[in-house]
């Protein structure tokens, strides 16, 4: 038998000739750079910047929407107070309904997309 031995693309041991996913189940097709479990790139190009800039812009937009809605609620509260003091109880309740619906909008803006940073 000469040295080095002649190369053959397989092993004499059958269990080592199984496909790669069977032999190494922890290695996925995307193992390495594009491993989905890797959430941060670490130091390197882009390090320290937003990982998902479009999510960040959405969060800013949600804050803006919520503040705008709260300004509307402040206006509704003044209208409700004025209406109630003038005796228009029905108008006051309509304003309260508007305020409650606005609160639901703000609640949705808060709770939707918890991964946004």
């Amino acid at each position: 038998m000469s040295y080095p031995p002649e190369y053959t693309p397989s092993s004499a041991e059958p269990r080592l000739n199984r496909p790669v996913p069977e032999r190494y189940p922890q290695i996925r097709a995307t193992s390495g750079y594009a491993d989905p479990r890797v959430r941060r790139t670490g130091p390197g190009p882009g390090a320290g910047t937003e990982q998902e800039p479009e999510r960040s812009a959405m969060l800013t937009a949600r804050v803006a929407v919520a503040i705008t809605v709260v300004i509307g609620q402040l206006w509704a509260l003044t209208v409700a107070t004025n209406a109630w003091m003038a005796g228009s109880t029905a108008t006051a309740w309509w304003c309260t309904g508007f305020s409650a619906a606005s609160f639901l909008v703000v609640l949705a803006a808060w709770r939707i997309g918890p991964r946004d940073r």
Binding site: V70, L74, A80, A100
Partner: peptide
């Protein structure tokens, strides 16, 4: 604000 509006009404 929603609670306050309810109390006012």
């Amino acid at each position: 604000l929603a609670v306050g509006s309810t109390l006012v009404s």
